[in-house]
Structures are given as C-alpha cells and as structure tokens.
Amino acid sequence: MKRRILLGIIAFVLVVGLVGAYFYFKQTPDIVQDKPHAAVQAKDLLAAFEQDTAAARRQYIDKVVEVTGVVKRVDTSGAVVLGDETSPSEVVIGLDRRHMKDYESLKIGSVAVMQGICSGYAKSSSDPTDLLASLGTTVQLRSAGVKSKQ
C-alpha cells in the first residue's frame, strides 16, 4: 500500500514536471503559414487604424494577420516596409528569426504577401513638438515572413 502511494506521488511529480518543462521550454511558434485571423490589403489595414482605432485594435492587435502590399523598403537585418510611395503611412514588418532571409525573395515596387502578428500602431499627430508627426500612420507586425502561395 505504502509503495503504491509512493509510486503514485512519483508519477504525479513526474507528470507535473514534464508539463512544466514543456511550457517552460516551449518556443514561440512560427505562424507565417498558419491560417490567418484576417487577410487584408496594407492600405486597408492603415485606413482601419486611422478611422476607428478602438475597433481596429480589437480586430487586429495580437492576431495573426496576412497583409498584401507593395514593398517600399527592405532592411536586410530583419524588416520589410509595405506602403505607397505617395503616402508616409506604412505597414512595418519585423521578420521572425526563422524567416530572416525572407526579404531576399522580395523586390522593391512589387506586391508581396506577408504574414505576422499585428503588434502595434502609431498615428500621425498634429503636435508641432512631435518629431514623428510627419511619419504618417504606422502599423506593425512582428514574427512575420513572406507567405508562400498554397
């Protein structure tokens, strides 16, 4: 009887330990090819945050979002900017550590489909002391990559 109890305790501790270790060591997932919560054009994503920030936050922030837009700039150390040459407003995308070379398949001026987690936004302000005022609206994605066509 005592032995059974002891075995039971050992088994319990082992299971708790394994579950704990699983969560502790679990890597942030690669979500680039996942089914997105929303698929949207870059200009529509920007417009959504400009028009109704609260609604856009609820709809996009922390969600997996697929964004289609024209590649405006590429930062070879891990970021891609989608946007229109005529506007300072842009979707700025940080590449996931497993997708750091994804920019190599992109061409400035051509359309790209990217997927990541929508992680923030900044709206242009009219504050004259704000140096960032002329940068337009910026919506950010993190943990992103180029989505391959299925």
Binding site: K26, Q27, T28, Q140
Partner: peptide
C-alpha cells in the same frame, strides 16, 4: 508588443 522572444512563456 513588437519585442520577440525565443521562449513563448
């Protein structure tokens, strides 16, 4: 929220 980590936790 744009900070990325290796571990999900």
């Amino acid at each position: 929220k744009s900070f990325e980590f290796e571990k999900a936790l």
